[in-house]
Structure formats: structure tokens, C-alpha cells
Amino acid sequence: MAKRIDVSDLDIFYGNFKAVEGVNVSIEPRSVTALIGPSGCGKSTFLRSLNRMHEVIPGARVEGKVVIDGQDLYGSDVDPVDVRRQIGMVFQRPNPFPTMSIYDNVVAGVRLNSKKMKKNDLDDLVESSLRGANLWNEVKDRLDRPGSGLSGGQQQRLCIARAIAVQPEVLLMDEPCSALDPISTLAIEDLMTELKDRFTIVIVTHNMQQAARVSEQTGFFNLNGVGQPGRLIEFNPTEKIFSNPDQKATEDYISGRFG
């Protein structure tokens, strides 16, 4: 189920503005890959280009290739809706559907795939997804209550349960802990460590300790100046990035001697 992602010569544009330039990277399956870098360097844009979510903004387009196990995401016959069904995403701010119960939130993606499932199978899926997101014990008695009544950390885990319920091949996380307290953050990080056995995980984070704790590989994005496109400066095993990076810019950034 977990798949590798090969990105070659990827440029991302918003209208005429080139936001990201020349990304070449291979992301290994069954691992956590962290993307770090200063604000506005294009790491979130890059992440969103991996499931074509950046296209939500009018005028967004890419040049180059993103290939997931041989399938070109930007092939002319590929529907972005299908791409997003294979590649799950968790956002910066927890966003369970406020008009749905916890149960309905978890199965929202499955219902979209318009598979008719028996009530029993749905129940099992809800339980396994919520267990997968380490949330089952906290919510099993109130599955019919709105998801918006949970705490921030619980809501984020609900969003993760919703994302993994459709059995995606890849899980993208865009600063999933930046709105959470340290204890909830720890819970999500533990969860990532468990989930990487089943999914390919790519996470954008501003928290370098987090990148160091959870990821095997780390990519450092940077830009030369305002209005310039962001670039992938360095992509290496996390240990190497944080102990002996190849690039001076990376070392400056992780040691806080930046800008």
C-alpha cells in the first residue's frame, strides 16, 4: 500500500509567479520524510503539489513530473479527484466537518468513494481507523456527537483517522502539530511512528526537534530572497542533516544562525 514518490524537475507556479523551482527528490515508502525551511520557502506548496491540492488556488500549475509507483500524477488523463483519493492529507488546523458526528467524519472519505458498505463493515472501519489514530478509547462512547466538541489534539487525531480510513498510499501532513499543545503533539508524533509501517508519510514542520524525532529523511527548502522561487537546498538522512549537513545554508538554518 505504501508507495514511493519520485519528483523530477518540478516547478510550481501561481499564475506567472514561480513559487518553487527545480525540485528533484525520491521519497521512500514506509518512512517519514520531513520538510523544513523558513516561512514562504515553498515547502507547503510543494507538499500540496503532491496531491494536487495546490490547484484549489486559481492559476496554480506545475511543470515537471511527480510519479507515484510509476503513475504520473500530472498525466493528461489523470483526474485530480482520483489523486486525492489515493493521497491523504492532514492540515495545519484540525478541520473535522462541524456538521458531522465523529462517526460520520471518519467515514466521510469512504462514503465519497461511493462504495456501498454494510453497517457492520462501516462500524469496523470506524473502530480500526480510530484505533489507528489512537483516539478510539477517548471517543468510543460518543461517536454520534459532533467532532467539533473534541479538544484540538483529539480533533487532529480525528482528521488523521478520517484520512487513513480510505487506506491512502501516502499521507501528507502540513504542520499537523503547530496548533497543538506539547502533549497532543507528542501523541501525534507517536502516531506517526506507528503509521509509517503502513503509509508513506511526508510532513512539513517548523519544529526542528520534531523533524529530528520523527523522520528518516529531511529536506531543507530555502529561497534566495523575496519574490524568488523556493528551492530544495538539501535532502539527506535526518541524522546527517542535523549533525553534518552538506550545505552551509542548512547548517545556518538548523543552528538558528539564519537571517
Binding site: V56, R84, R93, N95, F97
Partner: peptide, 15 residues
């Protein structure tokens, strides 16, 4: 309608 929830739906593969 919050962009947050619209994006959540789109990211799940909603048309």
C-alpha cells in the same frame, strides 16, 4: 463556508 472545511473535503477526494 470556511476554506478549512472545503479543503478537508477536497483532500478526501471530493468532486
Amino acid at each position: 463556508a470556511p476554506a478549512l472545511h472545503r479543503e478537508a473535503a477536497l483532500a478526501l477526494g471530493a468532486t
